[in-house]
Design a protein around this nucleic acid. Structure first.
Length: 304
RNA sequence: GGCAGAUUUCCCGAGUGGCCAAAGGGGGCUGACUGUAAAUCAGCUAGCAUCGCUUUCAUUGGUUCGAAUCCAAUAUCUGCCA
């Protein structure tokens, strides 16, 4: 069975293209691990690869959801693992690509998501907004001192209480480990900060020229404003304001650029924390070859 | 040319004699993060060093025990009158 290759790193470093390159060289198929690229119709703003740029390579888990849907790591975990297994059965190389750290992790590591319950969640959220979270913090300190000691933010605090209530098991007992469930190679793409910022600005500019506003407008007609996840996507949230008339195109472009920079920084923080990632300079003209060599060596050594 | 006003740390912007390295916001940086993750949250942001010290609030020179804060001159900008 062939190993799993994952391409990670901040946005605008060329992960998608690098993945297509590798897929062509090693007879691979690509599995998307970018939470917002699941949504149909969110193309320009998510920098989804155009059909032509996919160069005949099969892409999985792209356009699998309506914007009204809510992406869920747990669901994605299962779908992605199935897709990967299928690719491997076909004797091809699975290449997981995405900048959503948790989503990548959910696929490659031994990770189990405790269940969720809408009613419990809603009740806890209502309680938090009505009484504040101090009391809930105290409750968690009793139910799950380990999790409480981590000083969780409100959202996670609620989740921890939900898990405890639902499973009787402390949330902290589901603590993550870095533990690949199959031979995996994580390739990280990074780039000098100044260059990254320039690329981000360029990209947002290009998105606008490619018709992002029109895309947002047509999604708005399909209820984008009412969605919980899709409406918050970078670029979409900002251009929705243009449609509302509360922001100009210039302002939206600027704030989208800023939000993207911050996003890239957070992605970097996430992936840097994983010592297993092998990093490459995305601006290196020789990148494509270096990635290929690394994959080749890895596949040879992982004994296929 | 005359009169009036402005000049603050990367940016915007508070501060009108000691509690000011200077509020707040933005930006930047760092980090956390197992069911919203392009989300959510936290910390740092003059310099050097452990309390502390050094250099900052246009520039120069004053007043004062003490100045971002008061005075004078200069520079630049803005408004009104020519």
């Amino acid at each position: 069975m062939r190993p799993l290759v994952a391409i990670v790193g901040p946005t605008a470093t060329g992960k998608s293209d690098a993945a297509v390159d590798l897929a062509r060289r090693f007879d691979g198929e690509i599995v998307n691990a970018d939470a917002l690229q699941f949504y149909r119709g969110m193309d320009i703003g998510t920098a989804k690869l155009l059909e032509a740029d996919r160069r005949g390579i099969t892409h999985h888990l792209l356009d699998i959801m309506d914007i009204s849907g809510e992406a869920s790591v747990a669901t994605f975990q299962q779908q992605a693992r199935e897709a990967i297994a299928g690719i491997q059965e076909r004797g091809r190389l699975p290449i997981l690509v995405g900048g959503s750290g948790l989503y990548v992790r959910a696929v490659i590591d031994e990770l189990e998501f405790p269940p969720t319950d809408r009613a419990i969640r809603r009740r806890l959220e209502a309680e938090a907004s009505a009484n504040g979270i101090a009391g809930m913090r105290r409750r968690l300190a009793v139910a799950d001192p380990v999790a409480a000691a981590r000083d969780l933010d409100e959202r996670r605090l609620i989740r921890a209480l939900e898990v405890h209530e639902l499973t009787g098991r402390p949330f902290s007992s589901y603590m993550p480990r870095r533990d690949y469930r199959q031979p995996t190679l994580q390739l990280g793409l990074d780039i000098e900060r100044e260059l990254l910022h320039a690329r981000v600005a360029q990209r947002v500019h290009t998105m606008h020229e490619a018709g992002l506003l029109a895309e947002v407008e047509s999604l708005a007609a399909r209820g984008l404003r009412e969605t919980r996840t899709a409406s918050r996507a970078i670029g979409y949230a900002q251009f929705l304001e243009v449609l509302e008339g509360t922001s100009t195109i210039e302002q939206a472009t600027e704030s989208t650029t800023v939000a993207t920079r911050r996003f890239a920084r957070r992605q970097l923080t996430w992936f840097r924390a994983d010592p297993r990632v092998r990093w490459f300079d995305a601006a290196d003209p020789d990148l494509s070859r270096m990635l290929a060599v690394t994959v080749q060596e890895f596949e040879a050594s992982s004994g296929t």
